[in-house]
């Protein structure tokens, strides 16, 4: 059986290449049809905020890559609810299909995967 991987992305899309390079790991694994999930934790949840205008910082649009996840077999983005709430993001106005994970379930969620990569 294929070994599963969880990619935990903890960085905002505005802090250099961290968020993009975390997402690239997920997309590359998805391309090989590997069992893989993405969890946005801490500042990683800023990747979901609506109406981003990355051209203002001469950046490419990371949310376009997030939207491509289903094409790579990653149907939902897992999101730590507390991270969203703490950062004032409105759960109902996010532009992506997400699955919220309660803080008390995060440890169990991580333990469902063979490997974890946190960026």
């Amino acid at each position: 059986m294929a070994r599963s991987m969880l990619v935990i992305s903890r960085q905002a899309p505005w802090s250099g290449l961290a968020a993009r390079e975390a997402l690239d790991i997920a997309l590359a694994g998805g391309a090989f049809e590997l069992p893989l999930a993405l969890l946005l934790l801490d500042d990683g949840v800023f990747q979901l905020s609506a109406g981003q205008r990355p051209e203002s910082l001469e950046q490419k649009d990371l949310s376009a890559n997030l939207k491509a996840l289903p094409l790579f077999g990653i149907e939902t983005i897992h999101v730590a609810r507390d991270s969203l709430v703490q950062r004032g993001l409105d759960i109902d106005s996010l532009g992506h299909p997400i699955e919220l994970i309660e803080e008390s379930r995060l440890g169990d969620f991580i333990a469902r995967f063979d490997h974890v990569v946190t960026l």
Partner: peptide, 20 residues
């Protein structure tokens, strides 16, 4: 080589250990 090499190695190993 590509990121696929990370995944290929992850398929073959018992532990993936990442250092930042």
């Amino acid at each position: 080589s590509g990121l696929g090499q990370l995944h290929e190695a992850a398929q073959q190993c018992d532990r993936l250990v990442c250092f930042g």
